[in-house]
Every structure is written in structure tokens, then in C-alpha cells.
Design a protein around this nucleic acid. Sequence first.
DNA 1: TTCATTTATTGAACTTGTTCAATGTTTTTG
DNA 2: CAAAAACATTGAACAAGTTCAATAAATGAA
Lengths: 193, 193
Amino acid sequence: MTEILKQNLSKHISLSDKELTDFCSLFQKKTIKKKEFLLREGEICKFEGFVTKGLLRVFHIDTNGFEQVLYFAIENWWITDIDSFTNEIPSQLFIEALEDSEVLLISKKDKEFAYANLPEIEKLFRVMTQKTHVALQRRMIDNLSKTADQRYLDFIEKYPQLNQRLTSLQIAAYLGISHEFLSKIRKKISMKK
Amino acid sequence: MTEILKQNLSKHISLSDKELTDFCSLFQKKTIKKKEFLLREGEICKFEGFVTKGLLRVFHIDTNGFEQVLYFAIENWWITDIDSFTNEIPSQLFIEALEDSEVLLISKKDKEFAYANLPEIEKLFRVMTQKTHVALQRRMIDNLSKTADQRYLDFIEKYPQLNQRLTSLQIAAYLGISHEFLSKIRKKISMKK
DNA sequence: TTCATTTATTGAACTTGTTCAATGTTTTTG
DNA sequence: CAAAAACATTGAACAAGTTCAATAAATGAA
């Protein structure tokens, strides 16, 4: 059952079989139904999670009540509020299942146990954090330089599997535009073809 | 001379005196004059740097020739293209000194030596990368949810020291707006007072 | 100091994106 | 299946931000 997790970890750095198995044994499976929350604003995020099934979104609600999606997570993606989790402070984020989902969760205590006792895990998360950081840098530059049209085209090209499973409402909240405007963009694009 | 670097490292995690000194000895000092480049697009970033004096900017130039500033770095900040550095791929970024500056640089080889031989360095960079990632997540959300007016006010409140040392041109490139529009924002704000 | 270069300001016309309200479509759920 | 709820589309009026061009101010180098 943790096979998919093992494969994911091995993609980043090579770990011994024992270390891999020991580390994976620290995760607990949790199922979560569509529209349920894994985390709400104000709570302290007690887990770092790996998605084995389904689709979730990590989002923020601003002072005007608008939602901004920080990222989506499907099978094989990691999910947490890293700020709240590592610093044990109240989260400013929500994590919600958009489909019936299944995640493997590790607690802070167990993760610290891993850092202390499994030599390569520290490197593993250093590498993984670097990768997500690089991806976010790219998104930041794109958001600064590209129009909504282009960002939408990039999104559907980069994440075709997400595009199929998400409503335009969710995609708009990720792109940082209103869903009405996204609707107009879609119309414009379909007319060009 | 590496005193300021030692202090910075100690802020993140506690290291033994020996480890701290050993690690700092791997850095080389480099001075760089205003308008000179530490890195250009297409080059492989050979260093990770710590600024001890001056001011630099990390930026991207898009297909229309517009510049987007990913971040600025003054004394006590780290500077690199982490993607190019870790993966040894051509950079998409420029790093330029906006003032006469002084940086301490570590090469990839020496950093890997540190990861392999100084047990706590891996943790140090895992923690530092997490912190910069959290900061970028916040900026991403702000860029998705706030108007340029508000982002500018946030910027001068959060980085008063940068605000004084930067031209509005640079600040506009960080906020993702034209410098003309920033000028109008500044006027509007000054009239309100 | 002076001339050239870079930076900042402003206005007018334009483009991009928002808001609101109305309507139609799809999905969920009892 | 029917009703309700959520989602998507469209248009019109508006607001936010860009572009271009002209001018002023500040800075830098000879």
C-alpha cells in the first residue's frame, strides 16, 4: 500500500531498502471525503501528507472573502502547510478534498524521529523542498510577466490531468482571476480553433 | 570577516563552533561593482552566495524584454539561482549588483563536501530553504489577492531599508507593474496624507 | 561644471480584468 | 425522478493597469 510512496521517495534520492521501509512505516493512512477539510485556517497543521488517491486543494481566503489556490495535489503529490507544520503556528490556509481522497500522513514527532534516526531523510526533504521552491519561483515569474490568457494556456498544457478534474472556478482561483473572466478566455480560445 | 555569516547561520540552527568555522572556511570573498553581473542567463550558476555588503537583484527577462525581479539581496541575505546551481543547468536568471557589493561564495563541490562531512549542514539548508519557501508562498498569495497599491504599501512597510536604496523602477519590477503606474500610485498615496 | 544618461512624473488613449445581474446548464441529493 | 444547489456563460458598466509620448529632475562621468 505504501508502494506508491516508496516509488515517489526513490525519485528524489536513492535510499536503502531498510531506510525506505522504516520511513514509510511512520505514515498513517487516512481517507477523506469530497468537501471535507484536512486543515482549516487557525488550526495548527499536525501532518505532512502524501496523496495516494483523489484530489485536494490548498487555498487561502483573503479579507474580501476571495479564495486563492496555492496548489492542487493529486496522486503522488505532497500536501501540507509547511509554515504551520514546522513552526507549530496557526495556519492561514485551508486544505479541502475536491474528490474522495486517500492520504498517507506523518506527524511532526515521527518526522523528527526520522530526521534524527534515518540519516538520509534530512537530505531527502532538503532536496524535495528545493524542488517545490524552484517550481514556485517559476510560477511567481509567470504571474509577474504573463497575461491571464497565457497563464491559462500554460496551465492546461502543464497539467492536463488537473484541467480535466477541476471546475473552472478552481482553475480561476489558481490563476488569480475571476471565473467569469476565465469563461471569456475559454470562449475566445475556442473561437480561434 | 566571516563573523556576519556565522551569526546568520546560527540564527537558523545551532551548530558547534568547529562545524561553524569549518563550514565558513569554505567561502571565498568576492567584490562586485555596481552594474556588474554575478550571473547571466544561459550560464550555469557555480555558487551559492551570502551578501556581506551592498545590494543585488535577481531577475528574469521575459520574451517581451520586460524584467521581473524575483528578489533583492542586501547584507545578510543569501543569493543564488538554486535551480541552476543544484541541477547544473543553464540559468534563466540574471544576478546584478545595484550597489558596490561584497559576497561570500561557496562552490558546489565545497557545499557537497560540507553536506557529506559536516553533519548539521544538511539540516541547516533544509531549514533555510523551507523558510524562503514559506516567504515565497506568502508573496504568491499576496500577488494573487492584492491590488498593486496594497502590494506597494506592504513592500515599503516590510522592507523600509530596501525602499530607500532602490529606484522605483526596481520596485515596480518586483511588484510586477509598470514604473509609470507605480509613479501614479505614489502620487495618490502622497495626496492622501 | 557640464553634458549625457538614467530615472521620475504626467496625461491621454487603450487593454486587461472585475463586478453585477440575468440566464442556462450540470450535478447532487433526498 | 424532481428539486435544489452548484457551476458556467454572457453582456454591460466599471476599475485597474499599460502604453506611448512628452517633459522634468536627478545622477554620473569626463
